[in-house]
Amino acid sequence: MSQHRSSDGELEKIETVLLLEGIYRRYGYDFRNYSYASIHRRIWHRIHLEGLSNVSSLQEQVMHDSDAFFRLLGDFFIPVTEMFRDPETFLVFRRDVVPLLRDLPYIRIWHAGCSTGEEVHSMAILLHEEGLLDKTRIYATDINEDALQRAKDGMISIDRMKQYTKNYQAAGGTRSFSDYYDSDHGVVMLKPHLRRNTVIARHNLVTDSSFNEFHVILCRNVMIYFNNKLRDQVHKLIYESLALEGFLIVGGKESLSFTPLADRYETRNSPNRIFRKIR
C-alpha cells in the first residue's frame, strides 16, 4: 500500500515537471525551479477550482486554453505585502543606511518583486522625509502585470489603512501618515509627487538579466519560493546589479548563508537581513 502511494507521488512529480515545462515552452513563464512544495499547493488549488482530478488534466486544459493558464498564473502570483511591512526593517534602514546614502550624488534603489507596490510607496515616503527622494530613482519590478498596474496607479487598500498607519509610526514616521494619500469614495491613492521618481516595469528574475547598477536592492520574501539552484542564480543577478558597498535587504526568512556569494557581503543587521557588498 505504501509503495502504491509512493509511486503515485512520483507520478505526480513527473506530471508537475511536464506541466511547468509546458508552461515555459508555450507561454514563456519559467516556474521550473520554484520550490516544489509551494508550486504543488497552488497547482492543486487550481485543480480543485476547475473541477479536475489530476495534474495531467490541468496540463491539458492549460496548454489548449490561455484563459485557463492565466487563472493558474493568478494562483502562482499571490501578493503578500503591506505598507512598511516589518516596520523595524524600515526603522533600521532609516537609522543605519540612510546616513550612508546622503553623500551619494544620486541614489538608485531596486525593489525586485515589488508586487502591488506598497513597500515601494513606503520607501518613497521614508526618502521624502529624509530629504533624499528628489535625488533618488526607485525602480520597482515584478513579473505580474496586474500587480504592476496597481503599483503604477498608486492605489492603497482602504481596509488596511489602520494597520498601515501603525506600521508607519513603528517605522519611525515623522509626520501624519494621512499626509501622503488622498481618499475618495473608498479609494485611497498615494499622492502623485511621491511617485514621480519611481519607474515601474516588468522584469522576470528567473529569465531577465541585470539592467542597471544600484546602491540598494530590496528582494524580500521572493526567493523563499525558489529552489536552491534558482536562488543561487537570482543571487548572482542581484550581486551583479549591486554597486560596491551597496546594500541588499532580503526577507525575514531568507539568508545569504550557504549561497556561493555569502563571503562577498558583510552583515549590517542580522535580525532585519540587511547586508552590504564588500567585494
Rank of each mutant, 00 (worst) to 15 (best):
Y139A: 09
H128D: 14
L194R: 03
A201Y: 00
V206I: 11
M189K: 14
T116Q: 05
V206D: 01
L127N: 12
V216A: 09
I200S: 02
S183P: 01
S210Y: 13
L133G: 00
R85K: 09
S209P: 09
D134E: 15
E213H: 14
R150Q: 15
P99F: 05
A147D: 01
G154A: 04
L127C: 11
L91F: 05
V120T: 14
V187F: 08
N144T: 12
T89H: 10
L91N: 14
D208W: 07
K152D: 10
M155F: 01
F214S: 03
T174Q: 15
W110E: 03
G154N: 06
G117D: 12
T141Q: 12
T207S: 15
D103T: 05
A147F: 08
D208L: 01
M123W: 03
L218H: 02
I125N: 10
T136K: 01
I109N: 04
H215E: 09
R94L: 06
F214C: 00
P87H: 10
L127M: 10
Y139E: 00
N167G: 11
T207E: 08
L133R: 10
M155T: 03
H203M: 00
L104I: 01
N197P: 08
C219K: 06
L190Q: 08
E118K: 07
V98K: 10
P192E: 01
D103W: 09
P105Q: 03
A147R: 05
V188M: 12
I156V: 02
L190N: 09
F214N: 00
R137V: 08
K135W: 04
K152L: 12
D184V: 12
Q163A: 11
P105A: 07
A170I: 00
T198A: 09
P99H: 03
N167M: 08
L127Q: 08
I109H: 06
I200M: 01
